[in-house]
Every structure is written in structure tokens, then in C-alpha cells.
């Protein structure tokens, strides 16, 4: 109390003349508290992932005690959740639906997405490149419900007219929409992977007389294969988890598809369309949460693999 005049800038009394100064004083005084707050927020991501797992489990796991048939759940194609006599919960058809629409989407999206990534990263310069990157970024921003709407209202009628399919909303429609949706992430992650290849690789190949095609094919692809794989995996993760677009564009029929023009239903679409009708605490309701758990596990595994693969490439280039 005896030295406020000698050190005015550090004294609370002298600093608290204005509101801002007083706030700053408190901000510095509360440093330990704030640091803990920052730490907790930093760990919140772990908390949330864990919480998602726990809360979905909390709703799904009471099934275990009620004689729920897990082998039927995974191997049966019969999905009759609202049957009064004997409700059946077999998700095989929807599992096949998810896998088929994801595969189709990846067959379209992976070559195009990687090609576009190569073009943006290696063949294109200056302003045009900036414009392309912005377009691809905006492509990623279009909401999934709009994609679903496009599939339902625009592509569906076009498919009916061109292929003579009975319904326009089918596997092909969903595959096209999902391909367009998962391309931006493939392009941006793939481009990052190609950019991560050191320029010395390119220069060495050029000095040996390689053409740019040979550089891409013989040098960049092998060097960036982990990153490109991660790009594809992230695209797969996005395609598996997509909900609204496939809900609107794939036709909503629980069956195993035998042709491109068969309507299908995916796991995500099933949850989205039936959770509203299911009674909370009911077996049907819990089965939907169980499907959610399956989806969570699958996307978790895909993302984890992608992350490990990316880590791999980073270490390789650090050497």
C-alpha cells in the first residue's frame, strides 16, 4: 500500500481509471483461471466425441437385455419396424444400399477429383487457379438439402427421360449427387497432398527430361500416394455419412439393388425418415440409435485411417 506512486502502471488503483484499463487489469489477474478455461475448451473436442458415443449408446444399448437378435440385425434384409405381429429389424439391405451408392459415387468422384486436384496443383497458375479454388470451395458450401432437391427435382426427371427408368430417384441419381458432393473434399485434400511433395522432386525429374505427365504419373503419384489415399478416404467418409441428399435422391425402397436404376435406401436415410415416427424408448427407436452407432463406428474408423495415413506421409517427407 505504500508504493502506488512509484509504480503507477502496475498498480490496480492507478490502472483502473478507465473501463478498458480495468478490464485489462482483471484479464491479467485472472490468468490462471483463463488458462484453465482455454485448456478445458481445447479438450472439449475429445469430450464431445466421447459424449456423442456415450449418448448414442445410452439410447441404443437397453436393447441388449430384451433378447434383441443381433445376427438378424446384421444379416437379414427384412425391415418391418412397425409390424404389430413380429417387427423385424434387418439392416442388410440398407447396408448394401449405403455401400453401393458410396461405391458408385467414389467411382465417379475419385478419378475426377484427383484429376482436378492434379490440374489445380500442377497445370494451372495465377488468377485462373485462384478462381478454380474458389469455385471448388463454393461447391463444398452448397447445403446437402439443396443437392437432394436437385437430385429429386432436376436429375430424377432427366433420368426418367433418358434411361426410361420407372422412378427417377434411384441408385444412379444418388451416386451422381454424392459424387458431386464428395468431390470438393477430395480435390482440396488431394491438392494439399500434391503440394506437400517437395519441389526438389519435380526439379529432379525435370532435369532428367521428364515431361509433366511423367512427373505426375511417375513422381507425384508415388510420392503423394498416402495423402491422395487420405483424400479418397475422407471422400468416402463424407459419402457414407451424407443424409439429406440420399434421403431425397435415392428413392427410399428397402431392397438390395440389382441395377443402377433400382431405388435403394441407406442407413442414414432410414434414421432421418423414421426417427420422427418412432416412439421414444421403443425397440424401433433404439434400433435407429443402434444404426447410428454403426455409422459412428464406420466413419470413425475411416477418419482414423485417413489420419494415420496422413501422419505417415508427413513423417516420410520430414526425413
Amino acid at each position: 500500500m505504500s508504493t502506488p506512486q512509484t509504480a503507477p502502471t502496475t498498480s490496480p488503483r492507478a490502472a483502473r481509471h478507465t473501463f478498458g484499463a480495468s478490464m485489462r487489469w482483471w484479464a491479467d489477474r485472472l490468468e490462471p483461471l483463463i488458462e484453465w478455461l482455454i485448456r478445458i475448451c481445447g479438450w472439449s473436442a475429445i469430450l464431445f466425441v466421447f459424449a456423442i458415443f456415450c449418448f448414442v449408446c445410452r439410447e441404443a444399448l437397453p436393447l441388449i437385455g430384451r433378447g434383441f437378435d443381433f445376427s438378424e440385425f446384421l444379416t437379414s434384409t427384412e425391415w418391418r419396424p412397425s409390424s404389430v405381429v413380429r417387427p423385424q429389424y434387418g439392416i442388410l439391405a440398407m447396408l448394401v444400399g449405403t455401400v453401393s451408392v458410396t461405391t458408385l459415387a467414389m467411382l465417379i468422384a475419385v478419378p475426377l477429383g484427383l484429376g482436378a486436384a492434379v490440374y489445380v496443383s500442377e497445370f494451372c497458375q495465377g488468377r485462373f487457379r485462384e478462381v478454380l479454388k474458389i469455385v471448388i470451395e463454393l461447391l463444398a458450401a452448397i447445403p446437402s438439402v439443396v443437392w437432394g432437391f436437385v437430385g429429386y427435382m432436376v436429375i430424377g426427371p432427366v433420368l426418367i427421360n433418358t434411361t426410361g427408368a420407372a422412378v427417377g430417384v434411384n441408385l444412379l441419381n444418388g451416386g451422381l449427387i454424392l459424387a458431386l458432393m464428395s468431390v470438393p473434399i477430395i480435390v482440396s485434400v488431394g491438392e494439399d497432398a500434391l503440394k506437400a511433395v517437395p519441389d526438389s522432386y519435380r526439379e529432379a525429374a525435370l532435369a532428367l527430361g521428364a515431361s509433366r505427365w511423367e512427373i505426375v504419373y511417375r513422381v507425384l503419384f508415388p510420392a503423394a500416394k498416402n495423402g491422395l489415399l487420405a483424400a479418397v478416404l475422407l471422400g468416402v467418409g463424407r459419402a457414407i455419412g451424407e443424409t439429406m441428399a440420399v434421403l431425397m435422391a435415392t428413392g427410399h425402397a428397402v431392397q438390395i439393388p440389382y441395377s443402377l436404376l433400382d431405388p435403394i435406401r441407406t442407413l442414414t436415410a432410414t434414421i432421418a425418415s423414421e426417427l420422427g415416427e418412432a416412439v421414444a424408448g421403443d425397440a424401433h427407436y433404439r434400433v435407429l440409435f443402434l444404426i447410428g452407432l454403426v455409422l459412428f463406428a464406420v466413419t470413425f474408423a475411416v477418419n482414423l485411417t485417413a489420419d494415420l495415413v496422413v501422419k505417415g506421409i508427413r513423417h516420410e517427407h520430414d526425413r
Binding site: A45, I46, F48, V49, I52, F55, V56, E59, S144, L234, G237, R238, I240, G241, E242, T243, M244, T268, I271, A272, L275, L288, F289, G292, L295, F296, T299, F300, V302, N303, L304, A306, D307
Partner: peptide, 15 residues
């Protein structure tokens, strides 16, 4: 965890 949180399907977020 951040990466996985970004990758969790939106419908699982709904659940």
C-alpha cells in the same frame, strides 16, 4: 478428436 468430430455424420449428430 477434432478431425473425427468433423467427420461424424450429421444424422449421428442429430441422434
Amino acid at each position: 478428436a477434432v478431425m473425427n468430430l468433423a467427420g461424424v455424420p450429421s444424422i449421428v449428430h442429430a441422434l
